[in-house]
Amino acid sequence: MLEGFGLIMRIMGSICLVGGMALGGILTADRFRGRLEEMSGISRIFLMLRGEVEYHGLVLPEAIRSVGERMEGSLQELLMEIAGKMEDGSGQTFGVIWRSELNDYFAYSNLNKEDKKLLLSMGNHLGYLDKRMQTASIDLFLEEWKTEMEDSRKRLPGQCRIASCLGIVSGLLLAVIMI
């Protein structure tokens, strides 16, 4: 009787384990997709920022706010926060504001370490140079960013498959060991 109950419990545990691990795999795959979407949003931000700087000649706080108004979700929040901090005249440099706001944003972001490093480095280049150099430095960033995006896009189907399969397989493996 007790033996039968133990077996049922082990089977139920194994099902939960396989389900949990599979879900973990799916979520990881989702994170990969989320990263690509986020990268695409950031790329759009810098493209618009470039336009605001080059054609409208807006100063950085206004340009960031203007781009922020056209974005959605957490990226909009990020840009509005940065613009707000720049406009409130707290006396902080752009680099400090940029780093502090991005670090807050990264806590909920799907970007990887390299993306974060690249994004943070823009704090040293935005606003400082003349218009031509400013657009050139945004172009350079976009080029690197797009290369990264392309790589990521190519790898995405494989990564998603691996993440999902690994989740299920590792769940099954653990279940077998348990039973």
Binding site: V53, G57, L58, V59, L60, P61, A63, M86, G89, G91, T93, F94, L126, G127, Y128, L129, D130, K131, M133, Q134
Partner: peptide, 17 residues
Amino acid sequence: IKEAVELISNYSMYAYE
């Protein structure tokens, strides 16, 4: 000086060429 220049130019030296 660096901080002042940044604030004076509204973080946008490019806009004051």
